[in-house]
């Protein structure tokens, strides 16, 4: 049976680390990094990439439009 897999790419330098995307993810894929970007923000990243289905929820609620979403069937 085909399975849908997804991935996100976060523009780490533009992410402000607000964390709105974290609870928006139905599969707890996203967390805020321990590291900081050039502005000192703990940017979002895929902590559990295996769970991503490319549902776009994170990108849709991202106030800064820094998340790009990819999705395919395998």
């Amino acid at each position: 049976m085909a399975k849908i897999v997804g991935a996100i790419v976060v523009d780490e330098q533009k992410c402000k680390g607000c964390g709105i995307c974290v609870p928006a993810c139905p599969f707890a894929v996203i967390e805020l990094s321990e590291e900081v970007n050039g502005k000192g923000y703990h940017f979002a990243y895929m902590h559990y990439p295996e769970g991503c289905t490319g549902c776009m929820n994170c990108a849709i609620v991202c106030p800064d439009g820094v998340i790009t979403v990819y999705r395919t069937k395998v």
């Binding site: 680390g17 923000y41 439009g65 790009t68 979403v69 990819y70 999705r71």
Partner: peptide, 26 residues
């Protein structure tokens, strides 16, 4: 394998500039 142009499903619209928005985080 996933992050390829043909698998792109969502990206910021071109009708937003690349300027970093001056709004507070969140």
């Amino acid at each position: 394998d996933i992050i390829k142009p043909e698998n792109l499903v969502y990206k910021k619209t071109e009708l937003l500039t690349d300027n970093v928005m001056s709004y507070c985080p969140g």
